[in-house]
Design a protein around this nucleic acid. Structure first.
Lengths: 228, 228
DNA sequence: CGTCTACTTCATGTATACAATAAAGAGACG
DNA sequence: CGTCTCTTTATTGTATACATGAAGTAGACG
């Protein structure tokens, strides 16, 4: 993943200067949104021409966006066939959460053991989460993703963050599905986030690990009865 | 015009039928080879026009190849600036090995805890390693990579394997550098591999973890005095 | 002599045109 | 009536042309 968190989330909040979005970025965001919102079902194909119409750019940036989305795990590029929206199987989801638990557990241990300070952004993200309408699914999902990403980043290992980011594409899709089914429980999520902040600020490894375990075991349970 | 025949790198593996290489694939292999062989120094920029001349294809496939190489961590794409060959810093190398240790440790725990059988391919790779001339450094490196990949795969988590593979690009570049400097110690590596097989076959978690720790701490030491 | 500015130039970003291939459908034959 | 094949067609793969913005350069001014 080459991007530096340019998977621009929604909050119109404290972002810096506004930049004119490039055609490639518009294509990427547009297609990605279509995948996440379920406008194209898993297993379905995305034609370049359609993506051009939807995003309003030509095929060159659209193709680059499709390549990037494939690299991030959203799509599966079949040569001469097209771009298929990758279905996330139950087995893959299980593997995904096992790896994610491994990563976040490692990050937590690192933070506590090295007595690293927690970035203030974590608390800010909690407040942003509180201020965001629970109806805005994509925004909530992005804020949640940012929280965990920031947490992992606090461990001070850039490669670990890259690995974590690499897991996000399928996780985000599952999150969207589960949220759409109303099993959001954004309140619980946010409460556990604050609990994690507390434990980590105190460098209480055991308690932090306990919260992380609970928190990450929550989601697979929520998405247990999903298709696939 | 440079000869493109030597662009063909690794596929010593058991690939199936021969396929006519697409322009994108030629561009990818060609540019990747140029990076790995050091034809372009870390920090240097690769111009699309040059890449076109070298690989013999037009800008469209070249751009796709550059994007893919950027996604894999070989390049850093600066908008309106071009594609920079990403230098691997000492700090990144340290992070890389920390994550790798985390991954392989997790795999080992999983294998021992679930009492998973070890694939016979591991022993075969050891024998292949023994039969391979220590002078053929590239072959040794490839066998070594395959050994560890097979080991991680034995844990039965596909996502974990993907993560492991994602680490390989920078590791391969470092391996090329270190091999060019003549630091091999292939005998030690192979002995430890056999020790790992023994411990894992017996599902002796403590001993297996001990070997993995020793084994993975060996390599950063070997490459400690590298540039960057 | 240094510096600021305007211009020139060239590489990247984007759009479009052309080529090749695979899927789909029509027609003929068994 | 089914199937095989040939044709058609549409979509991806590739090449090229055009637009945009940045970097380097030369010139003039302080």
């Amino acid at each position: 993943m080459n991007n530096l968190s340019d998977a621009n989330p929604i909050p119109a909040g404290a972002m810096g200067a506004e930049k004119p979005p490039s055609a490639r970025e518009r294509a990427y965001q547009g297609i990605r949104a279509h995948i996440l919102t379920g406008a194209v079902s898993p297993g379905g194909f995305i034609e370049e021409a359609v993506a051009c119409e939807v995003t309003g750019v030509s095929r060159s940036p659209v193709r680059e966006a499709l390549n990037r989305l494939a690299a991030e795990g959203y799509l599966e590029l079949h040569p001469r066939r097209g771009a298929m929206v990758r279905p996330v199987s139950a087995a893959e989801l299980r593997d995904l959460y096992e790896v994610r638990l491994m990563v976040e557990t490692h990050a937590v241990r690192r933070i506590c053991r090295d007595r690293r300070p927690l970035p203030a952004a974590l608390t800010e993200l909690c407040e942003l989460h509180e201020a965001t309408s629970a109806a805005d699914l994509l925004a909530c999902a992005e804020i949640n993703r940012l929280f965990h990403q920031t947490l992992v980043a606090a461990a001070g290992n850039t490669v670990l963050v890259q690995v974590f980011d690499g897991l996000q594409a399928p996780l985000l899709r599952v999150a969207m599905l589960s949220l759409q089914q109303g099993v959001g429980k954004t309140d619980i999520i946010e409460a556990e986030h604050r609990e994690m902040i507390d434990a980590l600020t105190a460098h209480d490894e055991a308690r932090a690990l306990d919260v992380v375990l609970r928190h990450l075991n929550l989601m697979p349970r929520l998405t247990a009865a999903l298709p696939g």
